[in-house]
């Protein structure tokens, strides 16, 4: 997490370093043609690959979060670009700049509190008992010392600061 304010140029340098593999791209479009999300949503993965080292605009674009990480694009890329890794890296840079969708902040809070992105609820406790399972699974839900370890690890990695560092919202506009 940045302790000081980073400039646009500094962020772009980080994008260039993280995504230099995309310079091999010849814009053939096999990735977009293979993209199941792009069939139904605004996602244009070819354009994200194109812009990965060229503009910080994409960090604020909702398209970056429409990728389901299905890996079709990466499997079929004739230039062997690890496109999903590029998506992961761009998303991480965005998150570290405080750009995060509100629901993703909530899921992060659940992980920080419960050690589960999807914690148990009352209905499922009952269902578990009816099935003959322990009401709580043998995960961190049943083992508080293990949950403390998870919390210590997240603190050690500075994960709580990601949640607290939000400063910008994601826009739905096209990257052009």
């Amino acid at each position: 997490m940045p302790e000081t304010i980073t400039t646009d140029a500094e962020i772009l340098e980080r994008m260039k370093a993280a995504c230099k593999d995309t310079l091999k791209c010849m814009q053939c479009g096999v990735c977009s043609g293979s993209c199941p999300s792009g069939r139904h949503t605004a996602l244009n993965i070819r354009r994200i690959v194109r812009k990965a080292t060229r503009t910080t605009d994409i960090l604020k674009d909702e398209q970056l979060w429409m990728c389901t990480t299905c890996y079709n694009c990466q499997e079929r890329c004739p230039r062997d670009i690890d496109i999903v890794d590029v998506v992961f890296k761009l998303r991480a840079i965005a998150v570290h700049e405080g750009i995060m969708l509100p629901e993703h902040v909530k899921v992060s809070e659940l992980l920080l509190e419960y050690g589960h992105a999807v914690p148990i609820d009352e209905d499922r406790r009952k269902q578990r008992a009816e099935l003959g399972l322990d009401e709580l699974p043998q995960t961190v839900h049943s083992h508080p010392n293990d949950l403390d370890e998870v919390k210590a690890l997240l603190e050690s990695c500075g994960f709580d600061r990601i949640r607290d560092n939000r400063n910008e919202s994601v826009s739905g506009k096209e990257t052009g």
């Binding site: 992980l111 589960h116 043998q138 500075g158 994960f159």
Partner: peptide, 17 residues
């Protein structure tokens, strides 16, 4: 026993490696 969220690849791998 005592395991947590894996953590989810599409979410947390995206947020912070």
């Amino acid at each position: 026993k005592g395991a947590s969220c894996c953590p989810a690849p599409g979410l947390f791998r995206s947020f912070d490696k």
